[in-house]
Computed example of a mutant assay.
Amino acid sequence: MSFVSLVFIQSAACTRAPDSGARRVRIAIGGQNQLVYLPTTLARELGLYREEGLDVELQDHAGGAKALQALVGGSADVVCGFYDHTIQMAADQRELVAFVTMLRFPGLVLVTSPQSAATVTSISDLKGKIAGVTAAGSSTQMLLTYLLQKHGVPVDSVSVTGIGASATAVAAVESGKVDVGVMTDPALTIVQRRAPAVRVLVDLRHVEGVKQTYGTSTYPASVLYAKAEWVRANRDTASRLARAIRRTLEWMQTHSAEEIADKTPADFRGDDRTLYVDALKNTMAMYSPDGVMQAEGAKAVHAVLAQSMDKVKNATIDLSKTYTNEFVR
Rank of each mutant, 00 (worst) to 15 (best):
T254Y: 01
D185Y: 11
M183P: 03
T264H: 05
L275Q: 06
E258D: 06
G176L: 07
V301R: 12
V178G: 00
P186K: 00
T216I: 07
A298R: 00
K263A: 14
L241H: 03
R246Q: 04
G270D: 04
R246G: 05
D267K: 14
I190S: 11
Q253V: 07
A197G: 02
S217K: 10
A221K: 04
K227Q: 14
A295L: 09
S175R: 12
K263G: 06
E296S: 15
T254V: 11
T237S: 08
T184G: 03
E296Y: 10
R246K: 09
R205A: 02
A266I: 11
A295E: 15
S288N: 10
M183E: 04
A266T: 12
Y276F: 05
P196L: 08
I245V: 11
V200Y: 04
Y225P: 00
A244N: 00
V231D: 02
A300C: 01
V301P: 08
V178F: 02
G270H: 08
Y219C: 08
P289A: 03
K211F: 02
K227L: 04
G164P: 03
Y219W: 15
D185N: 15
G181I: 01
R240A: 14
V180T: 13
S288T: 01
R235S: 13
G176P: 11
G270N: 00
A295Y: 13
V200F: 09
Q212H: 11
G215V: 03
L241A: 01
E250G: 08
T218Q: 13
D203Q: 09
T168F: 07
G164D: 09
A295V: 14
K211T: 11
A228G: 10
V301D: 11
M293H: 15
V292L: 14
T168R: 10
D179K: 00
R269T: 12
R232H: 10
E208M: 11
S217C: 01
A221G: 12
W251D: 03
Q294L: 12
K227W: 14
F268L: 08
D267R: 13
K299P: 08
D262N: 11
T184H: 07
D203W: 10
A261H: 07
M286E: 15
D236M: 04
N282M: 13
T213K: 14
A226W: 10
K281Q: 14
R199I: 06
G297Q: 01
L275C: 05
D185G: 11
Y276H: 04
V292N: 07
K227I: 00
K211A: 09
V223N: 15
A298H: 09
R232V: 13
A257H: 04
V301W: 10
R273P: 08
P196V: 10
G270T: 05
L224F: 05
Y287T: 05
D267Y: 15
R243W: 02
A221N: 14
R194H: 10
Q294V: 07
A266Y: 13
R269V: 12
A169Y: 06
G270I: 09
W230T: 03
G176N: 14
V223H: 09
L249I: 01
